[in-house]
Amino acid sequence: MVLPLRILLDKVAGKSVLCLSVLIGSLLFLIVGGLYFKSLPILESHSFWDLISKSIWKPGKEQFGFLPYILSTVYITIISLTIAVPLCILCSVYLSEYASKRVKSFVTSLVDILAGIPSVIFGIWGIIMIVPFISDTLAPAFGQEDTTGYSILAGGLVLAIMVFPIVIHIMLEVLRTVPVELREASLSLGANKWETIKKVVLRKAAPGIIAAIVLGFSRAFGETLAVLMVVGNTALIPHSIFDAGYPLPALIANNYGEMMSIPLYDSALMFASFLLLVVILIFNVAARFFMMRVERRMS
């Protein structure tokens, strides 16, 4: 029996979309595998522990200590989250519990627009406003006169703003899943609105809020250009928030040009990308775990 053309088309299409799906499904493994494979040369000549715990960076002499870069990344991420998390929690509570429908949709569209702004715009804004603000006003106020303003604090501030949209977005989703009955029960027992939010809503949504923070963390961890532009890029371990730092993504972006000319250098940079990738994968799995707990709690 000859198949009609349309049935044949359906079969061919079915097979080809399956093939493409398998390809896309394996993309994650390709990225992880590819970067791991490329960082093998440096992992063979240096031990993993040496790479992440030493702080001397002399690619010409085959000394690759990633510690200053790793610490800079961690510090900047912590600074940005210390600023962003409280603001985001307060803002999402306002939007989900207090704001009228119109205000809510207005603010969320503005937050969405903020999410779409490219990182380089945040960077140039940081250079125009944040960096002079730190060197002229903030640092002298803390008794630090001789800073340029290009510091991990500047990086953290710029990053905090970039993290707002993603954290607020997830927190709103989570707060929406808290059943109205719970709020009503608490209010009917005489608790006021804030007490209800503090003791019922936020407590019920806690795992989801942690998930939102973790995802914000992973966004902050890998952000490159905005941070690179304001952070100063000196490969020393920063000792105060007014010191310059040199995060991992900036290291990769700044040295792509010369990496092919020095042995092991390209492998070292691929190892840096691999490190970033692995940390972000771990964060993602953790966030997923917390979100699963939210779903279980709410159902």
Binding site: L30, L35, L215, S218, I252, A253, S273, L277, I280, L281
Partner: peptide, 15 residues
Amino acid sequence: LDILYGIPSIVYGAF
């Protein structure tokens, strides 16, 4: 796809 969405662009650059 959700995980890929979270991977920073510098890692895509390297890949």
